[in-house]
Each structure stands twice: as C-alpha cells, then as structure tokens.
Design a protein around this nucleic acid. Structure first.
Lengths: 312, 312
DNA sequence: AGTCTATTTGAAAATATGTTCATGTTTGCC
DNA sequence: GGCAAACATGAACATATTTTCAAATAGACT
C-alpha cells in the first residue's frame, strides 16, 4: 500500500470512527483489516495532522462576547450561558437559572420587581431560591390570559415569585389584549387596575422576555388577534416585548394593537434601575436586537450563539 | 459542582487528554478525581460540543489546489503530495518519489532527459525504478562541482538515472560556476562541451529544482561566489533555477554571474515538452513562484503547503 | 534470481476506557 | 427541619484500544 492509499484508508477509518462512532472492531470487520491495523491507521492520521481536534474555551469566549455586547448596546450587564445545541429546551432552563441567580444577587430590601410571563419566565421562576431580602414586592407587568390552562401558567410563575420573595405578588387580572381599544380604556378607569399598572411602572426591577412573530408565537395563539392582524404584524414587527410588538429598530409596530394591550408602556422599561431581558435561541435574535436598540433593557441574559449573532 | 465549574473542569481534562496526551488514569490522579469521572467529563465535553474534531481530506483538497495552480500558472500538470510538517526531511523524499513516479509515466522510447543535481534530485533518483522505455538518453543540464564530496553527490544521481534508464548518462565535467566569464567562454569553445550543452538544450524532458538565496543555499557554500556577490544576489534574487539566479518575477538577476555559469540557458527550459520543477517547503515558495512566473516549468511537483502559499 | 534488511501484519498480552451498580450526596418540596 | 426523588460518585466489571512479538511480505542490493 503506497502512501496515498494509506492516507485514503486512514481517512475512511477516521470518518467511521470519529463521525459515525463505530468501534475499531466494527471498522476492522467492515473493511476486512485487523483491529490493530485500524488502531495504527488512526494513530497515523493523528501523526500526519489529518485530523484536527480543537478544544473550545466557551467560558473565556463568553467573557469576551459579553463585554462586546455591553459595549455595543450600552448595557449595564450581559450574562451569557454556553450552549452549542441551539435547542430551546436546553437553552431556556439554563438562561432561566442564570436569570434567577442574577436576580438573587441584585435584589435588596424594599425592591419592587415587575415580571411578565411566558415559557422563559417560567424557567426563571423554577430556579428561584428563597430570598434574604425583606419587604420585596412583585407585580405583573402585563395582562394575563383568559384560557384556563394559560392562566394557570401565568399564576404558577406569580406564585413561585411570591414564595421566593415572601410576599403576595400583585396579579394583573385582565387579558393581555382586548378586542378593542375602547374596552381597554374603560377598564383602565378602574382605580385598582390603574394602581397595579402604576406599580409596574414604579418597579425598580423589570424581568421580561422577547417574543417572535413566528406563527407559533404564543401571542398569536391566544385568539386575541385576527389572522389579518397577525399577517400585518409579521410584516412590520420582529417580535414583542411585554406583549407590545416592535419593529427591527425597536419602534412600536402598530399603535392600534398597542392601545388594546394591557400592561406598562414600553417607555417605562427605559427608566428602570434594572430592566432585565431574558431571551435566547436563534429564533429570537431579531426581537432581542430590536428590544436592545429600543433601549428597553439594560441587562441581557441570553446564550452564547445568540450573543454572537447579536454582534453581527 | 455547578454547570460552569463542570465545563471548566471538563475543559481542563480535555486539554490534558487531547493535547498533552495523558491517559485518563494519569489525569485522575493529577486532579484527584476518579477515573470514571474523567471518562464522564470527556463524554460531557463531546456532548456539549466543547471540542470539535475535524477530519481533513487532503486528497480532495490536493486535487483542487493542483487545478488552481495549473490554471493560475498555466501549467500542464501539477502534482502535489500531502505534508503537514513542513519539514524538508519529510517533504523531499515524498516529492522525490512523486517525481520519480511521474517520470516513469511520461518517459517513452527515444526520449532525452536533462537533469540537474542537488538534494531534491537525489531524492528523485532514489525512487527511480528500472524503466521499460528504450533508447532513452540522460544528460546533465548544468555543471557539476569540484569538491570531491559534492562531485560524488552529483555522480550518484547521474548513476542512478543511468541505471534506471539503461544508458550511460552524459556528465558535464565542469564546475557549475567559473571564476570569470572569460574562462567559461574559452572552455565553451570545446566541441565536446558544446555538444553536451546542446544535448541539454535538445532534451525533451528537463528535471530540476529551485534553490533559495538563504545563507545555507548550496550554491553559496561551494566557494564559487564571493561574499559581496552573495550579498548582492540576496538583495536582487529570490533563488536559482539550474544554478541561474532569478528575481521575484523570473528575470535573470545578475548577467555577470550568469555568464560565468555553466549549463543550458534559462530560456531553453521554456520550450521543452516537459519542463519539470521539483521543489517543496515554505523556504522555496519565492523561488518556485519566480520560476513559474518566468515560464521555466510546465510541470510542478511540490507539497500541499507550498501549493497553498503559491496561490496567495 | 537470491539473500539480506526493513517494514507490515495479526494473534495475544497489556493497558486504557466505558458501564453498571450500590452508595452517598444534593435538591426540591412540604 | 425532614422526606423523597434526582443526581453524582467510585469500586468492580465489561469492553475497547494499544502494544508486543513472531511471522510474513516487500524492497534493496549484489
């Protein structure tokens, strides 16, 4: 066997071994070569530099990425978790845990925490630990949902925050989007409701996520929006923040729908001591970027791949 | 151990295992962790995508590289050998073997092969097999050397070619560079010498290498050139072809020295059926490029890294 | 062609790695 | 704080890989 043939065989063995995950024995019988020879071919490949094993250092990389993001979007703090899968089910628990950890480090006595709800916030709630801070209040930043399942979902988050901060969280007992602006206006006259919204505006910490405008976006599947409205939003908006849809540059996308939406106004997020955007996965890059450009967050918690995408 | 710590430890283990080549057992005692845990950490690192194993396909790459070189320098044929070491002692035998193989495929009855000498040619000679072609002649393209060692060196190459092609190679029994042009002119009057040079010019196959202008270049260490001459050549030339020094663009670098040099003129290489440049390693990139730009070769035999450099 | 040496090969032994399982530890939950 | 479930750990075992070594093969030289 001449050198070229040897390289060729060694490469085939490398592919079977490192990519297809066959054992050397399996490769041996498949190629009708003895086991030791397979071992030697792999050694040969390594010696010849035929395969390159690169060890990444995501932790070091994360630091750099975080700093670059802080600079680019003028953020107070960026927290990144490492993820190579880009799988929501893997990312969400991790950024949830990171957000819960971060929250624990910043919450002090008498703080007021405004929260939204959704899958991401659920993951944050799941990782909360009992807080040492006293007299902390928790308030919902946006309306809830009428469907019973979903309502339980939002309530579950509220309850977990309540427990963690030893308080009774203030629930905003309204649908997140009304059918028309007038209805909302009327409801908003209610002093009790007004007070809740004001509490959300006054909260010094806000914790929220950003949503997409994909067909499977949660806000599109609650029945509050008609198909034409959804189509129009998909054309104009890149996602939502506290259920308010924004364009790629962070502007409000549709004031009509916005006026039917129950919750704190977007602008209120700009003035908070901590306005924490917790959102990850490649699907959400556009909405995160928009939220950051709009200045709605001063803290970002996301995953490494999304972070890299946000720098482009 | 939380996730970040786990990643950190896993990375350390990866470095020790894949880069430093320690066994899992060694790592275990070094870090005071049990062996199975090391195994699990490595598995974890692979699962998390913390290390990337890339299998190169130098053979496929070589094809592409070769084609690009053929196009860029308008060559009849480019033959590349794979080498990741960039070590002359590794490269030379391989390109020598490749050159010998190629020569065997092209030599036909009544061909005339002109050869130079040097380390590279020695390697070609070492890999020659007895040829099937009849009536092949072999002639030296340039003068030899007077020092006995070196003379043997050149003779050895001649002899191996003679044996492989079942002929008595025509030796050019002169120093490759004379002390002054006049001496050379006088010697060149000799009909016998003239005939040998003419045979070199008429050879339809030429096999030669390119040299550098580094201090350790063979032509600088034979005593034919003074130190000032060497300095000047190093300033103007990038290397030599059949002992004639050329600039980066393939022009003659110094006509005075050229007129003292014994061998076929550079231009003679341009008209050959096969003008085969056998030369590799990063040190020789400049001289190879110059030789190709000068049009002195229509076949190039080199290594992969040099090939890549020639494309820049 | 024949002999010598260097290289390659696979069986078997030695080593290294992966997995199982019982145990100890942490974590979530009331 | 205590209980249960999930998880991490290392000893022992099972498997996979590498090395050794003797035999076979190919190559070099006469």
């Amino acid at each position: 066997m001449d050198n070229q043939d040897k390289i060729k065989t060694a490469l085939k063995v490398c592919h079977l071994y490192y990519e297809d995950g066959l054992s050397q024995g399996e490769i041996a019988s498949k190629l009708a070569i003895s086991r030791p020879t397979i071992s030697r071919l792999l050694q040969f490949a390594r010696d010849q530099g035929l395969l390159r094993i690169e060890i990444m250092d995501p932790l070091k990389d994360l630091d750099v990425l975080a700093q670059q993001l802080e600079a680019k979007y003028q953020l107070k703090k960026v927290i990144l978790i490492f993820d190579a899968t880009n799988d929501l089910d893997a990312i969400n628990p991790k950024i949830g845990a990171a957000a819960a950890d971060y929250l624990e480090t910043i919450v002090k006595d008498n703080d007021s925490i405004g929260i939204s709800w959704g899958e991401t916030l659920e993951n944050v709630a799941n990782h909360l630990h009992p807080s040492n801070a006293n007299n902390v209040s928790v308030v919902q930043l946006k309306g809830s949902v009428s469907g019973s399942e979903m309502n339980n979902f939002a309530n579950d988050i509220i309850n977990k925050f309540s427990n963690a901060f030893h308080t009774d969280a203030v629930n905003l007992p309204l649908p997140v989007i009304f059918e028309n602006a007038t209805t909302k206006q009327v409801v908003m006259q209610d002093h009790f409701i007004k007070a809740i919204i004001q509490a959300g505006i006054d909260a010094n910490i806000a914790l929220f996520t950003s949503g997409t405008v994909r067909d499977d976006a949660m806000l599109f599947n609650l029945g509050y929006l008609t198909d034409p409205e959804i189509k129009q939003l998909q054309a104009q908006a890149v996602g939502d923040v506290v259920s308010r849809f924004i364009t790629a540059t962070g502007e409000l996308a549709d004031s009509d729908i916005d006026e039917r939406t129950v919750g704190i106004p977007l602008a209120a997020l700009r003035d908070k001591e901590y306005s924490i955007l917790v959102s990850g996965s490649s699907w959400k890059v556009a909405s995160i970027r928009a939220a950051l450009l709009g200045g709605y967050a001063n803290v970002l918690i996301t995953d490494s791949q999304t972070a890299a995408a946000l720098l482009d």
